[in-house]
Every structure is written in structure tokens, then in C-alpha cells.
Design a binder for these strands. Structure first.
Lengths: 72, 72
DNA sequence: GCCACTATAATTAGGAT
DNA sequence: TATCCTAATTATAGTGG
């Protein structure tokens, strides 16, 4: 079980594996973005769009400004 | 040496440590964003703004559309 | 398909130089 | 201070249910 090798930076051709990877890594990116925002007092926003139809929805994230408001 | 404990999701108050963390995690976020884009054939873009003046520059990232063009 | 598990890779906080 | 190192934590690909 578990990861068998290092990450090879190349499109995953298998649709099922690519879709699973997409969902797991999207969740991971969101967690990392929130940690950066909170730990380091930053505003972070991102947008992710699947190009191969693995996910029809556009995804976005914004670190809530309430952590450290810059306005008013 | 090395990390001494789990991540506590709270603003790092020490300016020096926060700045170091900001730079390291910004680099980490960019790497994760690029991996998501390439492995899973997605468009990914983000913006990061330091709120506490640890970094005067706004940072942005965009996964090059050349990986999997959706236009034309 | 989802969820849980877990072996392994990857990240990173703090120390070393 | 700026890298570099690495212990320890965290992320995740594959598996099983």
C-alpha cells in the first residue's frame, strides 16, 4: 500500500486515477493555502479549473479576511 | 534539529519566524499548485498578499496554459 | 463512486555552519 | 544574516471494504 515512488511531473493519462488525484490534491492545496494565510497573516486566493472534465465545477478558495482585516 | 511539533493553526507572532515561514510556504504552495496543474490537467491560479509587511510584493502564480490549452 | 487505512514521499521548522 | 541540513510532521497513491 501507499505511495510507491516519487512524483513524476506529467499528466496522469488514466481518467480514474487522474480524477482521484485531482480531488485529493485540490483538498491538499486548500489546506496549504489556509495554513499560509493563518500562520503568516496573508491574504490567499486561488482558482482551479479542471481541463479534462474530471470535475465540471470551477473551484475557488479565499482566506477569510477576518483573520487579519486590512480594510477599516 | 527539524520540526519540533505539529502545526498549530495560529498567526506566528514573531516577525522573523513569520517571514521565514511565509517564504518557505509560499514556495511550497507554488509547487503544489504546479503539480496539481500538470498531473491533473487543470488551470490553477493564485494570489498571495502579506498582511503584516513581511513581504511588500504581491505574489501570483498561474499554471501555464501550454500544459493543456483549452482555447483554440 | 466513497471512505478508511497506511506505506512511502514530500514538506518544513529550527538548528547548524 | 543566508544557506544548508534533517528530524519530525504532513501529504498522498494505492489498496481494501
Amino acid at each position: 500500500m501507499g505511495r510507491r515512488g516519487r512524483v513524476v511531473l506529467r499528466r496522469i493519462e488514466d481518467r480514474v486515477r487522474r480524477g482521484i488525484c485531482f480531488r485529493k490534491r485540490l483538498a491538499g492545496l486548500e489546506k496549504k493555502a489556509e495554513e499560509l494565510a493563518v500562520l503568516c497573516d496573508a491574504h490567499v486566493g486561488f482558482v482551479v479549473l479542471s481541463c479534462s472534465g474530471d470535475d465540471a465545477n470551477p473551484h475557488h478558495f479565499a482566506a477569510p479576511a477576518t483573520y487579519a482585516p486590512i480594510l477599516s
